[in-house]
Computed example of a mutant assay.
Amino acid sequence: MRHMQTFLPLCALVFFTTMTFGQENACSRPSFSDNIEMDGIQRYFNPGEELTLSCKQGYTPLSGPRTVVCGRSGQWTKTKLKCIPKRCPYPDPPDNGELYYEDTVYQSTVNYTCNEGFVLTGARTATCQANGTWSASAPECKPVTCGLAPIPEFGMIVYEKRIRGDTVDYGVTGTYKCLPPHVVVGNARAECTASGTWTKTPVCQVVTCPPPGGINKGYMSSDAQRDFDFMETVKYGCEGDYVLEGNLEAVCQQNGEWSQKPSCKAPCSVGVQRGRILYKGQKLWIKDLKPNKILHHEIVSFYCIDKNNECVYAMPTQCINGKLKIPDCFEEPSEVQFNLASGNQTSEIRQC
């Protein structure tokens, strides 16, 4: 009985020692990057046991080996295995649209948008999947369309390009016109907008102008005391030696007012009696200018003397509505000087 009591504790000690030795040389389940997977759920491994490594879904193995072995020291062998995310092909932007993305690796997303005036048909987003393909194909950007532009009464529209069918694309424009005496009231330009509707349609309204009235020293083609329709015209002319300045005719405008009427400008007379002038390419004694009139905007030159060089030069001046300014350099000879020495006048001296 004493022998048995001694033996049992000894057996228990040996068994405990063996278990402790084996546990100390075992390898604990290793840890790797989040993208690496390991077979099974075993927590401890004896020396010599292998553990197979693999990449999680959506990742591709790079370098090796793909197994590790539990060493006698309780340490696993080294591995250079890396798992990199799979890459999807670079997406192309849709026609008339754009795309936005930061990367094309697994779980990356791409967002699609369409330009103004276009509607997206298809998926707005796509995700790079574990198999290296996008979750959805690129969408289409289809143009917004409008029906034909509304036509106001007594009006019409002229499109910028030929229209086929009963729809037009976004951005197409046209110009409204009205049948006289109607005029466009509002914006004459029409456009198919991004919302699929046309800009506000104008109206065609009758416009007339009151009798235009005459001009001083002039006459007009019609003095009828009546209202004139939009775009009707009246022509003007001037009496005698007066010159018409401005447009020959006035037009009844769409605001119910006449365009600016012309005016008649008066001729000028030469305000000196003696001396010569250059007029229309000819030298003339002022007394021989008959009648003594220079028409509005015409140019006449007076002879001035350059005393330093003892020569003369012609100084031009222009008739402006009845006023002819005599150049400051011109010196009119006295009556005695002019009568006694007409051949020695300023105009007869050597030209500069």
Rank of each mutant, 00 (worst) to 15 (best):
F330L: 02
T133E: 15
P47V: 08
T346L: 08
L278Y: 15
C27T: 02
A136Y: 02
C11D: 03
W285D: 13
S31M: 06
L278A: 04
P93S: 12
E140V: 11
G275M: 00
M220D: 09
N111V: 13
P210S: 15
G214K: 08
R162Y: 01
C204R: 04
L53F: 04
V168E: 01
G74Q: 02
M38D: 00
Y176A: 13
L324N: 08
T109E: 07
I41N: 13
K280T: 02
E332C: 00
R350M: 07
G22I: 01
R72S: 10
R43H: 12
R87C: 07
C11M: 11
I215S: 06
C146N: 10
N292R: 13
P91W: 03
L148Q: 06
Y219G: 10
I277F: 07
N111Q: 14
K293C: 01
C11L: 15
T52Q: 11
L81S: 03
A136G: 05
G186Y: 12
E298D: 09
S334C: 01
R72P: 10
Q42S: 03
W198M: 08
P212C: 07
R350H: 12
E331A: 12
K307M: 08
L81E: 04
M156W: 11
K235M: 04
C329K: 05
E310H: 08
I320T: 12
E191A: 09
Q260D: 11
I305R: 15
E348V: 01
T77C: 03
N115W: 01
Q57M: 06
